[in-house]
Design a protein around this nucleic acid. Structure first.
Lengths: 153, 153
DNA sequence: ATCGCTGCAAAAATTTTGCAGGTAA
DNA sequence: TTACCTGCAAAATTTTTGCAGCGAT
């Protein structure tokens, strides 16, 4: 049950510094675009598309290509988790250190509001399915969709 | 637990006729491309992309555009179910009459072999998540991924 | 100074749309 | 006949790639 909101500006600045260290520590460089992407992900606790991030860029911004390349890098480093809501665009969330990123979402099909579902209900079932079919290293992707309270009328 | 394989040629011919009737009965026309698409879906009990279907077309074939348009139609009529494995392409399976199409898959991440998982484990959890968050009409998408027996070495 | 990183342009891949002509019922 | 369908071409989207030059350390 990790906190994802409500950090004070100073705590937030600190966390961004930690993120930058994670990058720096692996022979990668802290650049303007990457710092901006981390800030944006930090400020939005819900999954963002590359285009969302691109649009949220401060003046100056960066090329959309750079966002795509940065997301690949951050994903490979385990700093963001990729999600897929079934429309054509990948979405990303920042990962706390030590978080494996496995969680799910409840998405309003009308307004796209997203609720984070922290628990996972399928670890046991996953094991059963793996052994029943002789598969190894089984994971799953699960997302819930429905009508949020405000969109119900 | 619907059967999806092993029909005799005559039973299969019969079933295709039923499918055609379902189309005809709603002011839609049975055309060469649509008949071919139904045949192909019938012959492959696993999710196919529009391109898969296009490639499986007999000589003469049809335009890829027509496949896309046909899949939209068949989906709207409830005759196929759309699935999404998270690569960029939608996949489709033929639906038996009365089947709501809700089931899941176990996909080998290496060879893409697909095992159909007929049961759904989340009806109860779905209800709980809906009520806990004030959502209505909650559904979910779930797919499993892993290494199949043959790809494990 | 050295790699890595970025912007720009172009390409790849999937899917959608417009239009003129063809076809099932 | 008359809608409905289809092929072809073009466009829309998301994502990837090549290349030349810039930049963080």
């Amino acid at each position: 049950m990790t906190k994802r909101r409500g950090l004070s500006p100073s705590a937030r600045r600190q966390e961004i510094a930690v993120l930058k260290d994670r990058l720096r520590g692996r022979a990668h460089k802290i650049t303007g675009p990457r710092a901006a992407i981390l800030e944006i992900l930090r400020a939005h606790p819900h999954p963002l598309t590359s285009r969302d991030i691109f649009s949220a860029m401060p003046r100056g911004g960066c090329d959309l290509t750079t966002v795509y390349r940065s997301m690949h890098l951050l994903e490979k480093m385990g700093m963001v988790q990729r999600f897929d809501f079934g429309d054509g665009a990948a979405r990303f969330e920042l990962l706390e250190e030590g978080d494996d990123g496995h969680h799910h979402h409840l998405v309003c099909v009308k307004c796209s509001q997203v609720v984070e579902i922290e628990q996972c209900f399928l670890r046991e079932i996953e094991r059963k399915i793996a052994s029943q079919n002789g598969f190894k290293a089984v994971t799953h992707k699960l997302e819930f969709f429905g009508l949020c309270p405000r969109c119900q009328r």
